[in-house]
């Protein structure tokens, strides 16, 4: 009974591009505490809704469905939109519950992948390189990151059509592969962080011990033990503090700011 419908209301490449474009600009534009990205999802689906459902009641119904709570990583969320469009194109209004379930089921796992790769690993790698060069006034690292962001933008655009054509198949087939890619990316990130500790934290102990005629510089004693001992110790202390129940990132920043001012003011540490 659907064959007549699918012929007249087919989703074209242009529709996919339009949804992609809308998702890019609108997914978080009306982000709010009540339903988070619901409005963005609705805005993305509006052309599809008006195309697929000529009846007013159906339109209202589907607009309501797509204005329900939704939250995922904006970079990878297009994949869900693509799958949704494929299903609604085939099944129409009957698929109402299916797509609602699909959205709820996939938004979490996709957010996990997107947040880890796009939200943490890429900024770790390129932010580290860029900041390392930037501290010396060299903009090349920053430009490198800029270039990567353009590549990401380009890649992002392939996800919605991929969701449309591949759909569920892909989620199951590549689940294990994605985990391995994520793990490998984390490995790379951790390696870079290891190198970051001694290179970007600039702190010295300017203290000088005086025993009669002999004076000993505290920093050179520490250096003989291990280079960058102070930065490593500071990272270890902060890491440990973050494990405390009442500690969070904002408090830690305030704490380190105050500690830096006090220790620097007293001349115990210096840049």
């Amino acid at each position: 009974m659907n064959s007549a419908n699918t012929k007249t209301k087919q989703i074209t490449k242009k529709d996919l591009f339009r949804a992609n474009w809308r998702w890019l600009w609108s997914s978080q534009i009306c982000w709010n505490y009540e339903r988070m990205m619901s409005t963005g999802y609705l805005y993305t689906m509006l052309p599809t809704i008006t195309k697929l459902y000529p009846k007013k009641d159906d339109q209202v119904e589907m607009m309501k469905v797509h204005n329900q709570f939704f939250n995922t990583n904006a970079y990878v969320g297009g994949f869900i939109v693509g799958m949704d469009m494929a299903i609604e194109e085939k099944e129409g209004i009957k698929a109402k519950d299916t797509v609602a379930g699909l959205k709820a089921g996939l938004m979490g796992p996709l957010a996990g992948i997107g947040d880890t790769i796009v939200g943490v690993i890429l900024p770790t790698i390129f932010g580290s390189i860029g900041a390392y060069m930037g501290l010396k006034g060299n903009p090349i690292g920053a430009f490198l990151w800029l270039a990567v962001n353009f590549i990401i933008l380009f890649l992002r655009f392939s996800l919605l059509p991929m969701g449309y054509t591949q759909g569920e198949k892909l989620v199951y087939a590549t689940g294990d592969k994605l985990n391995r890619i994520t793990d490998a990316a984390v490995l790379l990130g951790v390696t870079v962080v290891g190198a970051l500790i001694p290179t970007v934290i600039s702190v010295k102990v300017p203290f000088v011990f005086k025993l009669g005629k002999v004076s000993l510089k505290a920093q050179s004693i520490l250096d003989q033990f291990m280079p960058s001992l102070v930065p490593v110790a500071l990272v270890a202390i902060c890491y440990w503090l973050l494990g405390k129940e009442k500690m969070n990132s904002t408090r830690l920043i305030v704490l380190v700011l105050i500690a830096g001012i006090v220790l620097g003011g007293l001349g115990i540490l210096s840049k």
Binding site: I201, P231, V235, L252, L257, I258, I261, G264, G265, K271
Partner: peptide, 18 residues
């Protein structure tokens, strides 16, 4: 001096959170 030192060690926080 204190502000300058604080600027030097603040990256510690980001690394520890990461």
């Amino acid at each position: 001096n204190g502000l300058s030192t604080a600027g030097g060690i603040l990256p510690v926080v980001g690394i520890a959170i990461l």
